[in-house]
């Protein structure tokens, strides 16, 4: 592939093509997988530069993008509907947008504006990345897929005793802080009150 070949792609993403040129560009890449990949990468790079998407700097991430794009066909859209796909796929808007754009891409109709097309492509990419990153064994995880921060592990809520917490795993922060506060207060009250009571008794004895 020459640089010349890639220029229209780059220009398209930068919204610098006329309608005619755009049609040509789309035609030129329609049967070329490598061009499609390049287009995807350009779109991603553009997004990252514009800070529209968080960059995950991981080799496996890039690999997974390429792998995913190689496979990108209509069946991918069907897969979005399967149960194994986590929350992003279930999100109606994501699904709608992703499938719509992917269909558009595959039919390479003329779009209203190339900028829109760029966004559409990036959206599809994000969706694809999200889906392809999900291992079938992890389908129980329901955290937002777009969140690049891994699930915090090794931290668990503090409880009065591990036994009681096993029974009540639903206690949240507010409840927990109230429980701790009341336990501490109870002990404090005991300490102060007993002594007061006893002193009063002693006082009475002295009075007698």
């Amino acid at each position: 592939m020459t640089n010349q070949h890639q220029e229209p792609l780059s220009a398209m993403l930068d919204d610098e093509l006329t309608n005619n040129e755009l049609t040509q560009a789309l035609d030129s890449i329609k049967d070329n997988q490598q061009s499609v990949q390049t287009f995807g990468r350009y779109a991603l790079i553009g997004d990252v530069l514009r800070k529209e998407q968080e960059l995950v700097s991981d080799d496996s991430f890039a690999n997974s993008i390429q792998a995913a794009i190689a496979d990108i066909e209509l069946p991918m859209v069907d897969q979005l509907e399967t149960e194994n796909v986590a929350s992003i796929a279930k999100h109606p808007k994501w699904y709608q947008r992703a499938s719509q754009k992917v269909v558009q891409l595959s039919e390479h109709k003329l779009l209203k504006g190339s900028a829109q097309f760029a966004i559409a492509a990036s959206v599809a990419l994000v969706a694809v990345v999200g889906v392809s990153n999900m291992n079938p064994g992890q389908d129980k995880i329901t955290s937002p897929v777009l969140n690049p921060v891994p699930l915090v592990q090794g931290l668990s809520p503090v409880s009065l005793s591990s036994d009681s917490f096993k029974e009540k795993p639903t206690a949240n922060q507010v409840t927990q802080s109230r429980i701790n506060a009341l336990m501490a207060d109870h002990n404090q009250q005991l300490r102060a009150t007993d002594d007061k009571e006893e002193l009063e008794k002693e006082d009475k004895k002295i009075e007698q």
């Binding site: 005793s161 429980i179 207060d185």
Partner: peptide, 29 residues
């Protein structure tokens, strides 16, 4: 032995009744 009774504003974040135990100390909310 002693026990304390606290009456407080309601919070929605627990399922009544909340029953905990620490040794012989009971905690019921």
């Amino acid at each position: 032995v002693e026990y304390s009774v606290y009456v407080q504003r309601p919070i929605e974040s627990f399922n009544s009744p909340l029953v905990l135990k620490d040794g012989g100390t009971s905690f019921v909310m």
